[in-house]
Amino acid sequence: MESNYHTFKRRDNQLIVITHLAQLLTYLTGFGGLIVPLVIWATQKDNVEGMDAHGKSILNFQLSIIVYSIISIPLIFVFGLGILTLILIGILAFVMPIVNGIKASNGELPSYPLSLNFVS
């Protein structure tokens, strides 16, 4: 006998907003900004409408921030250029989760500039 069981995704913009804002945990704990959104995305991507796209954008942005930060460290010795790039990365990593959290609350897709595509 064939089953007619279908999974329906629920709409939960608040959880998506929380996932974006969870990136700010990096400023409190030093590492939570990647781990918490990863856990939320991994556990809810099949249950919440839009979570997969938002989660992938968040992970790509966080991984990009890590890569850009690692690249900036040796640039510190080149006329202090690395210090400037680390400051810019810090500002970007603080502002963009808030901007995209607001966009998510309005049902819009996120856009993270300079984000490399690690997870697709």
Results as ranks from 00 to 15, higher is better:
68 Y>M: 01
116 L>V: 14
94 F>W: 03
41 W>F: 14
117 N>V: 14
107 G>W: 04
67 V>M: 07
61 F>P: 03
6 H>V: 11
88 L>F: 14
18 I>M: 01
73 I>E: 04
94 F>K: 11
71 I>K: 03
72 S>G: 06
31 F>L: 13
44 Q>R: 09
103 K>G: 08
118 F>R: 14
51 M>C: 11
46 D>E: 15
68 Y>E: 06
55 G>T: 05
50 G>L: 15
54 H>F: 12
1 M>F: 06
99 V>K: 01
33 G>L: 05
2 E>P: 05
1 M>G: 12
31 F>S: 06
38 L>A: 14
53 A>N: 10
96 M>A: 08
2 E>V: 01
111 S>A: 12
30 G>V: 09
96 M>D: 04
62 Q>K: 11
30 G>E: 04
47 N>A: 06
68 Y>A: 10
18 I>S: 11
85 T>P: 09
54 H>C: 10
99 V>N: 10
58 I>M: 03
39 V>A: 03
18 I>Q: 03
6 H>P: 01
65 I>E: 01
92 L>M: 13
17 V>L: 08
99 V>M: 09
94 F>G: 07
74 P>A: 05
98 I>W: 01
11 R>Y: 10
12 D>H: 00
95 V>S: 00
97 P>E: 00
32 G>M: 13
64 S>F: 02
90 G>C: 05
23 Q>P: 12
37 P>A: 09
101 G>H: 06
69 S>D: 03
55 G>I: 01
113 P>G: 09
16 I>P: 04
68 Y>K: 07
111 S>G: 13
47 N>C: 00
41 W>M: 01
80 G>D: 12
61 F>S: 07
65 I>Y: 03
81 L>A: 00
53 A>M: 12
11 R>F: 11
53 A>Y: 11
69 S>V: 00
77 F>W: 07
44 Q>S: 13
102 I>E: 04
49 E>L: 05
6 H>T: 09
110 P>F: 07
37 P>W: 04
13 N>K: 00
71 I>G: 10
84 L>V: 15
46 D>W: 03
115 S>E: 06
7 T>D: 15
8 F>K: 15
101 G>V: 03
29 T>A: 00
54 H>N: 13
41 W>C: 02
54 H>L: 04
6 H>C: 11
54 H>T: 08
50 G>S: 15
24 L>T: 13
113 P>A: 12
117 N>P: 09
25 L>F: 05
10 R>V: 05
119 V>C: 12
5 Y>L: 13
113 P>Y: 10
120 S>G: 13
101 G>I: 04
30 G>L: 13
42 A>R: 12
79 F>E: 08
90 G>R: 07
60 N>R: 02
6 H>S: 12
42 A>W: 11
95 V>A: 13
43 T>L: 15
110 P>S: 14
88 L>P: 00
21 L>G: 02
8 F>Y: 15
46 D>R: 15
120 S>F: 08
112 Y>Q: 06
118 F>A: 15
55 G>V: 02
80 G>Q: 10
116 L>M: 11
59 L>N: 01
64 S>D: 10
118 F>N: 13
39 V>K: 09
73 I>W: 04
99 V>H: 05
57 S>T: 11
18 I>E: 05
74 P>N: 11
40 I>R: 01
50 G>E: 15
99 V>T: 05
116 L>K: 10
85 T>G: 08
103 K>E: 08
38 L>E: 00
81 L>S: 07
88 L>M: 12
69 S>M: 11
73 I>V: 13
31 F>R: 08
33 G>W: 02
59 L>F: 04
20 H>K: 02
